[in-house]
């Protein structure tokens, strides 16, 4: 019956793991690029492509 056995959502003292072997600035830089690249790598929704073809019809 230890108190910390059923620890709930840990506070962020798990940050040690998060930044293992990586300096914080590098980690931030990497994650920043990941947030951006994740979206770049998503397939482009049809809405976007339709927008241009529709605009084309209107002007053409």
């Amino acid at each position: 019956m230890t108190e910390n056995k059923t620890s709930k959502a840990p506070k962020r003292d798990d940050l040690g793991d998060v930044f293992t072997n990586e300096e914080l600035p590098e980690k931030i830089g990497k994650n920043l690029r990941e947030i951006y690249d994740n979206v770049v790598n998503e397939p482009v929704p049809d809405d976007f492509l339709n927008l241009l073809s529709k605009a084309d019809e209107k002007t053409g």
Partner: peptide, 15 residues
């Protein structure tokens, strides 16, 4: 060229 930039426009907006 504009179409090719759509992923970047989305990423910039999302960021």
């Amino acid at each position: 060229d504009l179409t090719a930039l759509i992923p970047h426009l989305r990423a910039f907006a999302r960021s």
